[in-house]
């Protein structure tokens, strides 16, 4: 028995001391696709003397949920990248302490959703839009759909692949867009729309990767020339092409009322160990250096109006003028209800 105890103590000694955090370390909790340039992060570390540690989880939902479960003893100091679809869940759980960054002056007011409370600070945004396969549409002499209604036309039968809103954030964004456009009450609701889409052969797959790489015609052996993705996907196709391209192989449809804007925020976690460094970090993420680095790192757009876009974005990316409008507070509150109702219509 003694041996057993000693063995376990030894195991603990080997295992335990990794975690301890010292004063000038700032821990950022974020999702798996977070990226930033080495030199940008180094610049922050040099300017402030703070060491940054980045903890990445799978997706935003997971980041928010884990932070709620660990509210009193948080995983880190700053949450990076929570978007408007999860915002109210986090605010309701009282997850953040307020901070009004002086850098906000260059950020448009409409991006600050929790107006005047400053629990969170906008840092970047991206639009979830339909993407189409340019070659396919040209070869078949098809018009590009210009509204959500168009997608129910026989001309686009068996052409659209979307993601499961229960599992995928672009999937949820697209569902929200249809709810914003068709509404929940009245003669023709979003569910009627989805019934029509289903009848017109929409394919639902679980996640973005499967839709984009397995079913979409432009990127693999798929048979669907329309896919729900991001407005920034075409420039990404050019940037990550295997040879140099003059034109993106795909295009984003940015017509009015077809896109959903995901605005992403940073927030200082309740009981954060290093609040001062967290505030410095939030200021820095709004600065031009960080903001201009964002597009090519995460394929999102900067919130700072002073920031300039990199060439590939300036040339190939389009920003929708009028994405759909919906109250962010509804999104988390009704998420389960919407998804359940949607699942009943589309999958069962």
């Amino acid at each position: 028995m003694k041996r057993t105890i000693m063995f376990l103590l030894a195991l603990l000694l080997i295992v335990a001391p990794v975690a301890a955090q010292d004063d000038d370390t700032l821990v950022i909790v974020t999702y798996g696709s977070f990226a930033i340039s080495e030199e940008v992060l180094e610049q922050f570390e040099e300017e402030t003397g703070v060491t940054v540690q980045i903890l990445r989880l799978s997706d935003t939902g997971n980041v928010v949920n884990q932070s709620i479960l660990t509210r009193d003893n948080p995983l880190g100091d700053v949450m990076y990248g929570i978007d408007n679809t999860f915002l109210s869940r986090a605010l309701d759980a009282d997850l953040f302490i307020p901070y009004e960054s002086p850098m906000l002056e260059n950020v448009p007011d409409e991006l600050q959703l929790d107006a005047d409370e400053f629990y969170v600070t906008p840092v970047q945004y991206g639009d979830v839009c339909l993407n189409y396969d340019r070659a396919y549409f040209a070869e078949n002499e098809l018009n590009i759909p210009q509204s959500l209604e168009d997608l129910t036309l026989p001309a686009y039968r068996d052409m659209l692949v979307v993601q499961n809103p229960a599992a995928s954030s672009p999937g949820l964004a697209f569902l929200i867009a249809t709810i914003a456009v068709f509404g929940e009450d009245g003669d023709y609701t979003y569910l009627d729309y989805w019934a029509e889409l289903t009848a017109n052969g929409v394919l639902v797959v679980d996640g973005w990767s499967e839709a984009y790489y397995n079913e979409f015609t432009a990127t693999g052996e798929g048979t669907y020339p329309l896919v729900v993705s991001y407005a920034s996907s075409p420039p990404a196709e050019v940037f990550f092409a295997s040879e140099e391209l003059d034109e993106a192989p795909t295009g984003a449809i940015i017509a009015d009322d077809t896109c959903f804007r995901q605005i992403e925020y940073t927030g200082i976690l309740h009981n954060a160990a290093n609040v001062e460094a967290a505030q410095q970090f939030i200021d820095f993420t709004l600065g031009v250096t960080w903001q201009e680095d964002l597009p090519l790192q995460m394929f999102v757009f900067p919130v700072n109006t002073e920031a300039e876009l990199p060439d590939v974005f300036a040339e190939y990316a389009e920003i929708p003028d009028n994405p759909v409008v919906i109250d962010y507070r509804d999104i988390d509150e009704k998420r389960e209800e919407w998804i359940e109702a949607w699942t009943d219509v589309v999958l069962r």
Partner: peptide
């Protein structure tokens, strides 16, 4: 998993 989370044929490859 991360590579497949990004658009672009090079990421897929």
């Amino acid at each position: 998993f991360r590579l497949l989370g990004q658009p672009g044929i090079a990421n897929y490859g």
